[in-house]
Design a protein around this nucleic acid. Structure first.
Lengths: 301, 301
DNA sequence: GGGCTGTGTATCAATATTCGTTACGATGGA
DNA sequence: TCCATCGTAACGAATATTGATACACAGCCC
């Protein structure tokens, strides 16, 4: 399926004739004929009903046309995703992120970003609920969890390793768990909506149910409780890096398993060109996370 | 931009090497190299960082990858939009339409459609508010108005000519307007949210403000008021065709202008293949409207 | 550290494909 | 009726694609 053929098909519908469309696109009439019939052959259906004097779309052509437009839009967006260089980021950048990530990672980055690009305005929306990117007019959302498939582009920006942490006071009093099974005897600080923790063990994924006296619906609250010695937290590395460095928290390593890593995703609406402000911010984010020690791995959506 | 190259790029990220990806896709290693470097040349950036022994995505490759996936999905959907033939429509078809259109056109069609395809279940949602197709899980929405651009496929199914109508009683009592300017001296039955009517006059679009003692937020209510002799309605042909035939309403032709025609659009989520049930229903709808005398024209989104 | 394996790619001639020109039937307007 | 214009068939010429061969290279195992 050739993009030139799609372009021609669309031009033909507005031009009214193959010859006129060919002139507009600076193609020979011959090539126009061949592009369309090549496309028709590939699809196995006839797209244009051709009389010498009048062209019209067949039913299949009518059905196919909007898809052709979408494909061309998507191609333009794909090109823009790597060719933004040269264009200055300008205008309003509407960002969305979770509260914890926004405060600790996104906000400082935004400061640097705005300093580097004075023409950019930023509106940073921090929420812990999943928002509708399209409806809310978000240019770019940063998400940690795996995401349901949708009509959005999701670019993997970095690994999001997670780890078990507890305060020195907690460990002194109750000791540290040494294996997965030990966890059930400890106070585990869980998210209200998620009483399960995922681990990797011998190359396999293991999900275990944990619990304790405290639950919260906010990462920040769990983090705080952990710092206060209330129990063991299961948190992202960027969230606890500072506390690990200054000794407020200690990492707990289990002998037989490690917390399942997630990834940090940059999610934005597809089509309509990737604006320079979005491209540059993603690049800056990836750069920041990479230099912070979170290697941006390859792998998939 | 070649779809084979996009496929290869994605396969390469999961295979870990060009050679392995080439084997999986039954390409020669040589062709694999050329496809990737051809794509890179077209984009003007390097996508894969190549060492003899290890491949990894560059930053640009990371940015481009999700777009490549989207493009392939879109292509599959585009193919499915014309190649559904042979597959039987099955499963639940969730339809959305306006109240008036749903009652008068969609519902009778659904009856025939379900009779023709016993394997299909239908859930018909009739609302006069604009709904979120993706969020509500709608397979296919029928819309009359021009639509804002979005991440959806909009297929033009038929013209939607509109006309001015009034009851014989109203015309007898107040006469019929003969020109655009006459309209201001008549009772015009308008939608609460839209006090403007659009006309075509001498090849140009003209929007005029009209009004009267009665407004409503429902097409059906306006229709009813019109039939009751309350004033002049500005309605779609399919809505008043029966009343015109049996004499309950009469068409009013202005000498200097005609109501601006709209179009009937079939709107459905892009990507994820066009299911047979959707394709077949759109075809049935287009067929029904065409045989009803609304010629499905060419033209754009 | 030296085979050894498997990778990514340059070269090059054979092959296939594309390209534009010319030509032709068809069609609607002057 | 003539004429301009449309879509496309035919056919060499120009161009691009293809696969075999060859080569430089990087990691691995012993």
């Amino acid at each position: 399926m050739d993009f030139d053929a799609l372009t021609l098909l669309i031009e033909t519908t507005t031009a009214g004739s193959l010859a006129e469309a060919a002139r507009r696109l600076r193609l020979s009439p011959m090539k126009a004929t061949r592009l369309i019939s090549g496309l028709e052959e590939e699809l196995g259906v006839r797209l244009l009903h051709r009389t010498t004097r009048a062209l019209s779309l067949t039913d299949d052509g009518l059905a196919f046309l909007p898809h052709a437009k979408v494909l061309l839009d998507e191609r333009a967006a794909a090109l823009a995703s790597v060719q933004g260089a040269g264009v200055q980021p300008t205008g309003l950048l509407r960002l969305s992120a979770s509260l914890a990530f926004g405060r600790q990672v996104a906000a400082p980055l935004v400061v640097d970003f705005m300093r580097a690009w004075p023409q950019v305005q930023v509106d940073l929306k921090l929420t812990d609920t999943v928002i509708d990117i399209v409806a809310d007019g978000i240019d770019l959302a940063i998400r940690i969890a795996e995401l349901r498939d949708s009509d959005l582009i999701a670019r993997r920006v970095a690994d999001n390793p997670r780890l078990l942490v507890a305060s020195p006071a907690y460990i002194e009093q109750f000791g540290a768990p040494a294996s997965l099974s030990d966890l059930s005897r400890h106070e585990c600080l869980t998210n209200t909506a998620m009483a399960h923790w995922s681990f990797r063990s011998q190359g396999r994924s293991r999900v275990i149910k944990v619990g304790g006296r405290f639950t919260a619906n906010s990462i920040d609250a769990i983090h705080e409780a952990c710092r206060g010695g209330l129990g063991i937290g299961y948190l992202s590395r960027w969230d606890v890096a500072a506390d690990l460095a200054n000794g407020a928290l200690r990492e707990i390593s289990l002998g037989d398993a490690a917390p399942e890593p997630l990834a940090i995703w940059a999610v934005y609406p597809s089509r309509h060109m990737v604006p320079a402000k979005v491209k540059f911010f993603i690049d800056a984010l990836a750069e920041r996370l990479k230099s912070a020690g979170y290697l941006s791995a390859s792998s998939n959506r």
